[in-house]
Write a protein that binds this DNA or RNA. Structure first.
Lengths: 245, 245
DNA sequence: GCAAAAGTGTTGGAAATACACCCATGT
DNA sequence: ACATGGGTGTATTTCCAACACTTTTGC
């Protein structure tokens, strides 16, 4: 039967494993990472060309089967590390997708993860030339149920970013308020008032002035800020937000 | 190998299946239901005595392995139906738990579901006398990682109930505002102002006056209301709540 | 008539919104 | 000098929080 070895040594192996699973009537478990990036004021997602004939020419999320000896989170980190060369990345589970026929080769339940990385980070290396940062806006058909997963993760992100400081993972460590606002506008698909946006963030007192300025901009440079995670951690979280639905 | 049959014919079968999984180095998939009820102004959860010797005398969530031919949601519904006799129940996936050693018998990834049911519903039949509605407040040790799962689901519920109308599933169809407020206070662990609470709900215009009154109360009876789900469905959801963290 | 909870409005403060002008820089 | 976005304050409105008395029913 399935040996407890690393199954991730190439595309062919996965196919063989899936075939085996299907023959034995076993449910496989995978993780799929929705890796978001932010570039040119647009939200992007890291995709790979599907290797299944059925889905040729369609884009697919980055995923892999979960090894027997690794936690789900570890599996997701592994996928991320293998594909981007980065660790220390924002990564969070969103939810499981387990429709019976979501994968044509075998029954596979997948755990979807959402990851946010800075596209321009120096450690980021997209070696595989099958990989591609795709604009979210112009993405319709995808392999498997990956479009559904992507949509769910996007909605999850829209909600999450308003309540937790994760957007900063998409930006360089030092960023201008304009960049931050563009980010929020891109993710939420709304226009925000610049002055109120600044007021909001300054009133939180979680942005540190780096006393540096933007460079290479053809206009007055903006100040660069850094998000103070330590201070955020120490803040007490409120349990009561107010009923509203 | 594993035949594609219903594995759920008794406790012994599960043990056999798990043993088989472990021997073959295969990851099992289960669902676990956190079934909340509301009684005597307290939040309760439906539990069963663990059948594992390691966890004897500890409480366990209601769960089962997922069949090969059923969706995750279906599996959770099945567990719920088998144990409570009820369908048409509120049920939603919370998230997956997949730590390597969370189950002593084998590697099992579980998908946690949160369910809300009316403890006093006439269709509710707790046949198994190993089952028990346990007060949430006085629950410390549980089998497996079920305490963690329960805690996560409770927090999920605390957040969810403020943004979505699911609390009504814990109450009879017709309820008084006092009952509703008690429910919110019990789930959130806070005291709320009665007048502001009423104002809030009335201003949503989603409660219908049934023109009936409470009976058998030793004081002035309150009006009974019904939640108007249709009207709620038609309301447009807002995407922008305001940044706050 | 007494105990117990139902029902009801107002007010002050905080937060969100809408809105317009001057400033610093690169070209 | 001019084009471009950076930076700032105020008035208005909306929402939330605090708070007390009268009414209805069962006993």
């Amino acid at each position: 039967m399935l040996a407890d070895t690393n199954l991730i040594t190439g595309k062919k192996d996965i196919k063989v494993v899936l075939e085996q699973l299907e023959n034995d009537g076993i449910i496989g478990i995978s993780v799929d990472c929705v890796i978001f990036g932010f570039d040119e004021n647009e939200l992007k997602v890291l995709l790979i060309k599907s290797d299944l004939k059925k889905f040729e020419a369609r884009w697919s999320l980055l995923g892999d089967l979960v090894n027997n000896h690794e936690d789900l989170d570890q599996a997701a980190y592994r996928v991320l590390k293998e594909r981007t060369g980065m660790d220390d990345v924002y990564l969070e589970q969103v939810r499981a997708f387990g429709e019976v026929n979501r994968h044509p080769a075998a029954r596979v339940v997948t755990i979807a993860y959402c990851s946010l990385i800075n596209i321009h980070h120096h450690k980021l290396k997209i070696l595989d030339n099958e990989l591609h940062w795709h604009r979210l806006a112009t993405l319709t058909e995808m392999a498997f149920d990956h479009k559904t997963i992507l949509d769910v993760c996007h909605e999850w992100l829209q909600k999450r970013i308003q309540e937790h400081p994760l957007g900063f993972s998409l930006l360089p460590q030092k960023f201008s308020l304009r960049e931050l606002q563009n980010l929020y506008e891109a993710i939420l698909g709304v226009k925000l008032d610049r002055r109120n946006f600044r007021k909001k963030f300054f009133s939180m007192e979680l942005l540190e002035d780096t006393h540096e300025l933007e460079s290479d901009v053809p206009h007055r440079p903006g100040k660069l800020y850094r998000f103070n995670y330590d201070k955020y951690q120490k803040k007490e979280r409120k349990k009561w937000f107010g009923i509203d639905f």
